[in-house]
Design a protein around this nucleic acid. Structure first.
Lengths: 128, 128
DNA sequence: GCATAATACATTGCTATACGAGGTATCTTG
DNA sequence: CAAGATACCTCGTATAGCAATGTATTATGC
């Protein structure tokens, strides 16, 4: 039965897969950015951009932060800036640290598994 | 008609994040499983289970395979088995190989970025 | 003062993805 | 022919990411 499909305009999804790849890892990345010190929203975006290759928009980071806060993984605090708009700083809670540690371990397992899978592919690349 | 929903027991998404983490990587994993030789559907599931830590269900793998086939990344061929149900073998096309190579490279960059991010966290774990 | 710009936080709507549950088809065994 | 094993396929739902858009506060130009 015709399922009202919104056929992807597509054609090219050449770089769509890369976007999908990141799903779920962003939450971990957000937590990781707060490991050393508290940061405010836009600062987290810039941090990730500088320290990894992740580029997130505001529409991505704020839902994540709210989610994590609702789960008790982090706290937020409004701080008046000397100049400009006040900033909402986020900081890890104990739960947040624990969760991040667990995630980091699981990530390692996951990444190692995939790396093993890709080893033959990457090996071929080198000898090209 | 009421579809007997098995609402994920949880509520707690403590381990849901791990499922999300994998999104998008599955397509690459499926391609990678076919690098050395052609395999049929259920065989791919078993391969990934053995060679990495990925566990996918049939409802996951078949849409992926159809997607990849529609994009010309792989071909399929029915093969009569000596015994049992006939099997549909999937094999990489040239495009599929090229795409997998590109994905593998991007994955490496992505994984390295995240690893760098997690380094402080993992470092702490070791000295615990 | 008032318009404009800059900074920052927040929300809405769309699309795509993963996956449980259920369904179909083929072959074997008793 | 019933029961079971093997294999492929599909539908419905939950959820995530993200572009676009909106709001609030402060600074700057005239």
């Amino acid at each position: 039965m015709a399922r009202l499909r919104t056929l992807p305009p597509d054609g090219e999804q050449g770089d769509r897969w890369e976007a999908q790849l990141r799903k779920g890892a962003l939450e971990m990345a957000a937590l990781a950015s707060l490991w050393k010190s508290r940061l405010y929203g836009l600062e987290i975006i810039r941090f990730l951009e500088n320290h990894s290759r992740l580029v997130l928009s505001e529409g991505t980071i704020y839902p994540i932060l709210n989610r994590l806060k609702a789960e008790g993984m982090l706290t937020s605090e409004w701080v008046e800036a000397e100049a400009g708009h006040p900033r909402k700083y986020y900081a890890l809670t104990e739960s947040g640290r624990a969760r991040l540690c667990a995630m980091a371990e699981a990530w390692t397992v996951f990444a190692d598994g995939l790396s093993r899978l890709l080893q033959p592919v990457l090996a071929m690349e080198e000898t090209r």
